[in-house]
Simulated scan of single mutants.
Amino acid sequence: MASDPRPSLPAPLCLEFDGGHIQASPFGAHLLSWHCLGRERLYLSPHTSFGAGKAIRGGVPVIFPQFGERGDGPRHGIARTLTWETLDTAGAVPPGLGFRLGDREETRRIWPYRFEAELNIEPAAQRLRIALSVRNTDPNPIQFTAALHTYLRVADIAGTLVHGLEDRSYLDSARGGVLCPPSDAPVRFEGEVDRIYADTRQPLRVTDGEQLLRLEAEGFADTVVWNPGAELAASLGDLGAGEHRHFVCVEAASVLQPVRLEPGAAWTGAQILTVEPSAGH
């Protein structure tokens, strides 16, 4: 039997904490699993390829320095398809996993700037903080967009609601980027949903009839909410028919107004996920 010609990915790292464990890959500084209070909280596609150079479908992809196609580089940037350096976090307080990515020849061919990025993942009993930091080490100012493309596992997308965006207008990317007025209701999922909400500051809550998850952001100005719906999911080779029912992406993001850093300046954006008791429990 011929050997697989694809380069193998670095082994994922695991960390146990009070009430669960996390698993993350140095490839993309990609959080693959957050098992908390007896349940997996993230969705990872059973059809993702885990091939070098291909983004992992699910978990928490790191989007940097370009969100989507808002620029001249690869869709969703370069960070999610490069191997990051693993940081020594032994004895760190709080305990966590850390990764660093610096510019190199292959990154400067695509995005011609010098930079240092770090991702730190800090789990606790009912809480998870994911923080992306970027420092400009270039002699010129830099601008970028970024997001933590968080895939949250849900019991069924048909019964899932996102609360906290009722009073915000949004760009509907599924309809060509048209600006829509506030819905005055929680976000529901009846087909493809792909929205960018600007200037979202309050905590959000995701409910699916079985669990309640609170989401807060630091440093990120926007929120992206995405589910491909049945038709698009079936057309994606690394997702597949019916898989859209098992997740919703609620992303802390800075998309509509790029982050600008002067030489030597730094920025940090974080997403904090907290498991809360559901009604009746």
Rank of each mutant, 00 (worst) to 15 (best):
L87I: 03
L165E: 02
R127S: 14
S173W: 11
R75V: 13
D167M: 13
R153F: 06
R80I: 00
P94M: 07
K54A: 12
G164R: 03
D88K: 06
L97T: 04
I142C: 02
E166D: 14
A125K: 13
R114T: 11
P65Y: 01
R80A: 07
R114F: 09
P141K: 11
T137V: 12
L132T: 06
E85F: 05
R41F: 00
G159V: 07
G98Y: 01
R80Y: 10
N120M: 15
R41M: 14
P139Y: 08
L132F: 09
R57S: 07
G53N: 09
E122V: 14
T81S: 07
R175C: 13
I78Y: 07
P61W: 02
E106D: 13
L87K: 00
G96P: 03
G96H: 06
V134H: 04
S133A: 14
F50Q: 04
L128D: 03
H47D: 14
N136D: 06
E105Q: 14
P94R: 09
R127D: 08
D167T: 15
I63R: 05
G58K: 03
P74K: 10
L161M: 13
R109K: 15
D172G: 08
F99E: 01
P141G: 02
A158V: 13
H163L: 11
V93E: 15
I130P: 03
V60H: 01
V154K: 06
N140H: 15
H47R: 15
F67G: 00
T81C: 08
D72I: 11
I56E: 01
V154T: 03
Q126S: 15
F67K: 07
G102K: 09
Y151V: 00
I56N: 04
W111V: 09
L132G: 01
S173N: 15
I157G: 00
L101G: 02
D167K: 15
R70Y: 12
I110P: 00
R153G: 09
A147V: 03
G164T: 02
D103T: 05
G59K: 08
G98S: 03
